[in-house]
Amino acid sequence: MKVRLALTVNGESREVLAPVHKTLLEVLREDLGLTGTKHGCELGECGTCTVLVDGEPVLSCLALPVAIEGRAITTIEGMAEGGELHPLQQAFAELGAAQCGYCTPGILLTAQALLDETPTPTRDEIKEALAGNLCRCTGYTKILDAVELASMRMGARK
């Protein structure tokens, strides 16, 4: 059953005609060309496919687009605003928090949601928030460092 979906992705309204059983992950990657969203299991077991829905991190591999019509979807492509990198993106690049980069989109968005809610998290709070995102390259060290750095910079900016 194909349905017409009206989605709000990265602030833009997008209409897609897609089978209703395609997950958000598939629609983003295959129908909207937003391949920045990655996938590592498609079963909810790795966190790689994380996107934000109304600012909350969710797994796009288990989300059905029909169920989230009208809600604001943010993917990695929408994280930089007006060509300016989000401080998290800047910090991840500077500190080498992205090695192969495959887990990076999901982790950046999860971290963004954390900082939106808790601007100055402790290291343990960052670990808790990112506990649903596996990374096989970094040992998480530089990722945690980068979130701390971004948080510090964002605090200083205000």
Binding site: M1, V3, P19, V20, H21, K22, T23, L25, E26, H39, C41, E42, L43, C61, L64, V66, A67
Partner: peptide
Amino acid sequence: MMRLPPFTYLAP
């Protein structure tokens, strides 16, 4: 990619 089987979706 693991995909869902087809279905009809109802949203009461």
